[in-house]
Amino acid sequence: MGVSDRTVLEVYRYLPENQTEPTFQTYEIDSQDNWVVLDALNHIKAEIDSTLSFRWSCRMGVCGSCGMMVNGEPKLTCETFIRDYDTMTVRIEPLNHFPVIRDLVINMDDFMEKLPTVSPWLIPDQDKPLDEGEYLQTPGQVARYKRFSMCINCMLCYSACPVYGLDSSFTGPAALALAERYNLDSRDHGRKERAATVTAHEGIWECTYVGECTQVCPKDVDPAGAIQMLKLSYALDWAKSVVMPKRGRS
């Protein structure tokens, strides 16, 4: 255990059975030097107030459960150290732009429903039998899409995106980045199939490139970059179809 420090956590509380408006509850705790915000929340739940509700599991930044607003910024709380905040008070709220089910638990149905619409699975040219072995793919070809395959669906990007905050019909950063992840995969031929959703009004063209999705991404996925790449590639497709209407696009 490291050095302990007095920390005040202001935590967003909302229980729909008893409240119509959220409140903030203050917990004063002795936090250890090596504690992340999630450790403090677990300490509160185990020792002070077992009614506080939040999601968490792997506590190593890969399951994507524990995204919350920490002092107004979307963060994975298992990777966010309390010692990095100069202020004695740390304010914890549910992720922005999502309906709140209870306390720090948000409703992410919207994302779960949007995800399949971008066909985030491999669409090969033709099905290859297993006995023909693997599709060959050089390390360079893997590198082309690898970054966009690192998304843990933590929803931080959605809560940083004002476009999504203003209009929740926007397909959004994580889902679109996954579309580009498959579009860039040398084994995939589903670009055309994904065009319908990706280039719809709610798709890439809704993005005005605020760029905050990339800034807050804890896994360095760069969804903003992915969306701009999608814009360029689908715009080129369209231009080619105008110039050479007879030639099929690949």
Binding site: W121, L130, E134, L136, Q137, T138, P139, Y145, R187
Partner: peptide, 22 residues
Amino acid sequence: PDEMLQLEHWGCPWSRDADGHV
């Protein structure tokens, strides 16, 4: 081996050798 290949065919980004094999 078939299960691993199946995953490869579903898009799993296995690390590769220079010649493109897993």
